[in-house]
Nucleic acid binder design. Structure first.
Length: 112
DNA sequence: CGTATGACGAGCC
DNA sequence: AGGCTCGCCATAC
């Protein structure tokens, strides 16, 4: 069986899994939490490689502007928005999330 | 082992 | 606000 050769991917998945429902974080935060500040792009690659039946709430990760950066080519972008709204996260008409309100940091324990 | 790629981020206009 | 360029990093080939 394939063992975790990439500690990075493992750390990213774990970090995303720690994001509570109704909250969102950014790729940059995830990368930082994974121990690789600046590797936001690489963090996105990890989420992008996730299987369908994953236990990782990848939809709670958006870019620093609070917007979904998944290409419109597929349906994953619409799925992310739907899942977020289902959790109570409100998106603006431009499809942007208010990070000041829904943003979550690993350091923050309270939700308010 | 060098090149290309991408679900990013910061800077600029 | 929105759009572009450049820099960073892990992966695929």
């Amino acid at each position: 069986m394939a063992a975790e050769r990439s500690t990075f991917a493992h750390a990213v998945r774990r970090a995303v899994r720690s994001v509570p429902a109704g909250r969102v974080t950014t790729y940059g935060r995830v990368a930082e939490a994974a121990g690789r500040p600046g590797a936001a792009r690489a963090a996105g690659a990890v989420l992008r490689a996730l299987p369908e039946g994953t236990n990782v709430p990848w939809w709670r990760v958006v870019d620093r502007r609070g917007e979904i950066t998944i290409p419109r080519s597929g349906h994953a972008d619409a799925l992310q928005r739907a899942l977020l709204e289902a959790e109570g996260v409100r998106l603006s008409d431009a499809g942007r999330i208010e990070l000041e309100r829904y943003g979550w940091s690993q350091h923050e324990g309270s939700d308010d």
